Computed example of a mutant assay.
Amino acid sequence: MARVVAVHGIGKQTLSEDTLRRQWLPSLNDGLARADHAERLSESDVAVAFSGDLLRPDGEFLAAGDPPYTAADVAEGFEQDLLLAWWQAAAESDPAVVPPDAADTLVATPRSVQAALRALSGSRFFANLALRAMVFDLKQVHHYLTDPDLRAKALARVVDQISDDTRVVVAHSLGSVIAYEALCARPGHQVRALVTIGSPLGIPNLILHRLQPAPVQLGGQPRGVWPGGERLVWTNLAEDGDVVALVKDLRPSFGPHVRCARVHNGSHAHDAAAYLTDRLCGQAVKDGLA
């Protein structure tokens, strides 16, 4: 079985296990090389826990790509709240994004949704991403957290890939939420390194409070359950411009043992490859393989 399990994030519904392995493997090896790790991972060393197909709409003749979502399809509650949080974060890190007016547009209304999508479409983070794809990304996060059947199937994909030989789990974006819950659901696992990149795990109310198992209250603040034993080292990497990783420091939410670091991904703030090739990511994977 694989020593490294990779868990992808949102927007991968048209890909597959083999496609993602071919994309991730060179980047993982580049990160290891920057961390002065002589060994290169082979295809048999890396397994991809793929769940994108669970979120892919059934095919129809004369239709292709993401569903033709519009601003009107952004549901009230979770989806509107997450969209507005993305807008606020994008405005704080990207001068090209007009900031929301706290007195008006931060209240979730159809008008504010349209304004948020319009503002984000001009950001470097969402550059070249179609509106329907942006809305689909929102819905993927929402569906995972609120659809028990989908959640169980996605978790099973990850749990099934983690064997006694697995030493490292690298998880990107929404995949970090799935990987975290999968490790919690597999007590006694032998994983030594959990590496989360571009993770939304620390977002209060929207993500943190919805995790399974539920966070415990510690000093009046929610604290996520530790996803392993004493040997597990959890490293979280976040880029300042990564809108999905709204909370860069996970220590207040999961305890002081999480190693948190900021990295620099340039114009591809949320791109998995940019994270994987960073020396700090390579070092975290190297430590887990040692």
Rank of each mutant, 00 (worst) to 15 (best):
A35I: 10
V285Y: 04
G65N: 08
K139N: 08
G122F: 00
I207P: 05
A193Y: 14
A85K: 12
V4Q: 02
R151Q: 07
A182H: 05
D160S: 10
D18F: 06
S44E: 15
V258W: 03
W234C: 08
S42D: 11
P100Y: 01
P200A: 04
V158Q: 02
V233C: 13
P95L: 06
R124N: 14
K153M: 15
L250M: 03
E60K: 14
T105E: 08
D249G: 00
D66W: 14
I178M: 06
D104S: 13
R132T: 05
L194K: 11
A64D: 14
A103V: 11
P99V: 03
L208W: 01
L117Q: 08
F125W: 12
H142W: 11
G266S: 03
N205H: 15
A284M: 09
R167D: 14
P57M: 02
S163Q: 09
H142Y: 14
V195T: 12
D160N: 14
R259S: 10
P256G: 13
A85H: 11
A133D: 14
K12V: 15
A179R: 06
W86S: 07
Q88N: 06
A179Y: 05
R22A: 15
L145W: 02
E43R: 14
V170P: 08
A38T: 14
G9Q: 02
K12F: 11
P215S: 13
A238Q: 04
Q13F: 13
V46Y: 05
A261C: 01
R231W: 05
A127R: 15
G288S: 03
G220C: 10
N205S: 15
S163E: 12
G11D: 04
A272F: 08
G241P: 05
L25A: 11
P100K: 01
P200Q: 04
N128L: 10
L25M: 11
P213F: 00
R111C: 07
P227L: 06
V216Y: 02
D18R: 14
L194Y: 05
E43A: 12
P222S: 13
G65S: 04
R210H: 08
S253P: 06
E79C: 09
V107D: 12
A193N: 09
A35Y: 12
G202K: 04
R34D: 11
A108D: 08
G228R: 03
A193I: 07
T19F: 14
A115P: 09
H172S: 03
N205K: 09
P110A: 03
R223V: 15
T105A: 12
V113E: 00
V4W: 04
R3F: 00
R167Y: 02
T105R: 08
A127Y: 00
A85R: 15
V141L: 15
H257R: 15
V195G: 08
V74P: 04
M134I: 08
A47M: 00
A290N: 09
L62S: 09
A154T: 13
